[in-house]
Nucleic acid binder design. Structure first.
Lengths: 230, 230
DNA sequence: CGCGAACTTGATGAAGATCAACGACAGTGG
DNA sequence: CCACTGTCGTTGATCTTCATCAAGTTCGCG
């Protein structure tokens, strides 16, 4: 682990684009950053464990972080994949004192850690900090509800179609999406085993979706949308 | 629908026990209540629809409300069952302007509706309102994450065991739990079809769980806990 | 007592997890 | 430049779990 007090300009730019930081006044932003450290972590690095006492919440500046929980048998289930700009464990600012899942870098990643106590104190003082947190938590809650709904009402090909559509720039006709990470990560994010994701892609081939490596080519976006109606 | 400007003392007491209201100063509480109306709704009453423009968020004072989303084919999936004290659609205070799911009373229910704009304005002024909302959203987010984890890691009997344990006063030995609502509602909350819930209960009978009506008798709570290890 | 809704039980099918084998590919070291 | 190796992804076979459909049965209530 490599902790820098001095941010790279790239990391600094990413930090400022974060939903959390971008809505703060410059004064508040400075105070938040004083309670923050940035780390460069190798791939597969465990950031914290389920049940550990929490001291920080986090924001991803680069790379991807996997949040997951374990079965008693040791089977893992992903709860969320966090990419650049995403915040995690922020629900611990108010309420619980323990992490509720494991967090591990998927690939090498850059992560900002914010001291919980300091930011909590700041949120109680500064309206804009509280407002930024409220917006973030609301957004996060909606995303998580979408996840539950997706799990409960969609089949594997539908979940994949959903994902592609959400990451597709175009409304109709042909399009292409580049996966930002390995397929096994995507499988976890969608609540599927890697094999199931693979089979879902094969099924979508019938309606003009071709996959080579991380590139997904879609012949007709409207056809994908129709998959959700089946 | 029956809207009262005057609260029954029973409803008033419940309102004050709400996680949202109970953390407010009396001044803030009064201002929040000025932006609130309370309704008594019959069973199966649709409170709002998925996609409707949102004007209020809600707090259940009595009875149960079901939040669910529809498939394109019309199949329903429950996202959450809200009981007395639970708040819903509060994530719309910041961010989206549209409801993201349907809300329907399960049985006859009493529900408080808070004007979104008014409470948003209040949250920007009053620290204690913002703090109460932050606590509520954090808690709600954790619960929803638990739901995802439960869906992804546990089988039907394990989900039921989990539910019983969470509602069981005792740590070991025999215990009893009374379901606060119909089994079909519990099935939805656990992401199961009613038949699957029924079968899960039969399977738990092997380890000393007996069900009669809404009463669940547990022979040995520790045995239930062991189900989660299987 | 009788009616309807809720619940249970059985039979069947679909979806996806798991296990195993194989192919593609990148990086490594000769 | 080429085998060697390990990771990732695909494909096939099988098994588990659960949804669905179809009867029954029980329960609550007028």
């Amino acid at each position: 682990m490599n902790t820098n007090l001095k941010l790279s300009s790239r990391d600094h730019a990413m930090l400022m684009k974060t939903p959390f930081m971008s809505n703060l006044s410059s004064a508040s932003a400075a105070r938040v950053m004083a309670a923050m450290t940035v780390s460069s972590l190798p791939a597969r690095h465990l950031i914290f464990r389920d049940g550990e006492t929490a001291s920080s919440f986090f924001c991803v500046l680069g790379g991807y972080v996997r949040l997951y929980r374990l079965n008693r048998e040791g089977r893992e289930a992903d709860l969320r994949i966090c990419g650049p700009g995403d915040t995690f464990a922020e629900c611990l600012l108010f309420g619980d004192r323990r992490y509720r899942y494991h967090a591990q870098t998927a690939e090498s990643a850059t992560v900002a850690a914010f001291d919980l106590k300091a930011v909590r104190a700041l949120a109680e003082q500064e309206r804009d900090v509280a407002a930024a947190l409220l917006t973030m938590l609301s957004q996060h809650l909606l995303t998580t509800l979408d996840c539950v709904a997706n799990d409960r009402l969609h089949t594997a090909p539908q979940r994949v179609a959903n994902y592609i559509l959400a990451h597709c720039p175009v409304d109709g006709g042909p399009a292409a999406v580049r996966l930002p990470f390995q397929k096994s990560l995507l499988a976890g994010q969608l609540g599927l085993a890697p094999e199931a994701l693979s089979r879902a892609f094969s099924k979508l081939r019938e309606i003009g979706v071709t996959v080579r490596g991380r590139i997904i080519q879609v012949g007709d976006v409207q056809a994908l949308r129709d998959v959700l109606r089946t």
